[in-house]
């Protein structure tokens, strides 16, 4: 696994000059993923979303690798088609190079809209890596709720009002859904832990077969925090057990990080504008529910890891 010096020697394949917000986490994901991919050629695609929109404004592109525009729902289908064509060309002897395939999608394009295409591609067993940069809402279109949005979060379609304080439902656990596909590699990582993420990308690409990584990506605009905290809030989400770092390799669960002392969830939530309304004393019960849900999920995960 490459250390920072080795990564630096590889050179950036995702350039500056893109139009993301200052302090954007999605572009950190793209940069680090392409750095981790190494020197072998890689073909990428991206579902409609922040990352695609900010990086490919005509006549510029921030991608220094082959990149294919996809619609919102089909980045997994697109890259699986390219991979199938590559396998055929390789069999015919037209292509001899070893090429890797990577698809990016936000939580909207992965948890909701692209779930069918993703599930299909994983089941067909293509040699591809799908990276979901999960910023927990449809940030590109103006912060609408998605099934990745956590309970209590205020978005434009689940606003904090007099009767209902933010999103009512709990978050969907997509990583578990992907693990249920029985594919060779599924993992969860976070912006703010470069070594964990680049290791997992390297591992996933070396695995050969369908792989999926969900990476929690703090969004300074949608979450509402000062831009310099992007990496810090990612790490804090791990320390509160809200977003455990783990991987499922050939069906075997493995925890990659156990917090020395679990931080209470409000430590993380109250640094963000989207949860600000929950500071009011009448919403104590909601915080307790959220904490309970996190603890239950953590316990469940630990059971799976000790199997």
């Amino acid at each position: 696994m490459a250390n920072l010096k080795e990564l630096a020697a590889r050179g950036d394949k995702f350039t500056g000059g893109h139009r993301a917000c200052a302090g954007c986490g999605a572009t950190i994901v793209a940069r680090q993923a392409l750095l981790a991919a190494g020197d072998k050629p890689v073909v990428t695609t991206c579902a409609t979303g922040c990352l695609e929109v900010v990086s490919t404004i005509f006549p510029y592109t921030a991608w220094d690798v082959p990149f294919i525009h996809s619609a919102f729902e089909n980045s997994a289908a697109t890259i699986s088609g390219v991979e199938a064509a590559y396998q055929s060309l390789k069999r015919q002897g037209t292509v001899t190079e070893d090429i890797r395939f990577m698809a990016f999608g936000g939580d909207g394009g992965t948890y909701d809209i692209g779930l069918q295409a993703l599930s299909g591609a994983m089941e067909r067993g293509h040699n591809m890596l799908y990276i979901c940069y999960d910023n927990q809402a449809y940030m590109n279109t103006g912060i609408q709720r998605s099934s990745a949005t956590p309970k209590g979060s205020s978005t434009t379609t689940s606003p904090n009002g007099k009767k209902i304080p933010g999103k009512v439902q709990f978050r969907k656990n997509l990583t578990e859904i992907m693990a249920a596909h029985g594919i060779p590699y599924v993992a969860q990582s976070v912006v703010g832990n470069w070594s964990d993420f680049t290791k997992k990308v390297e591992k996933a690409l070396a695995k050969g077969g369908p792989a999926f990584i969900a990476i929690l990506q703090p969004c300074r605009l949608g979450w509402g925090y000062p831009p310099e905290l992007t990496a810090e809030l990612g790490r804090l989400a791990v320390e509160t057990n809200f977003w455990p770092l783990y991987e499922v390799e050939d069906g075997q669960y493995k925890l990659n990080h156990t917090p020395k002392e679990r931080q209470p969830i409000d430590e993380w939530m109250f640094q963000q504008e989207r949860f600000r309304h929950l500071k009011r004393p009448e919403h104590q019960a909601i915080i307790a529910q959220i904490q309970q849900d996190i603890d239950a999920r953590w316990e469940q995960l630990n059971k799976k890891c000790s199997l």
Binding site: K13, T15, G16, G17, H18, R19, S55, F58, P59, Y60, T61, A62, W63, D64, V65, P66, F67
Partner: peptide, 15 residues
Amino acid sequence: GGNIEKGGTAVDFKT
């Protein structure tokens, strides 16, 4: 045809 002929051209855009 409005083709972008090489990758990584965003470096020319100043932010």
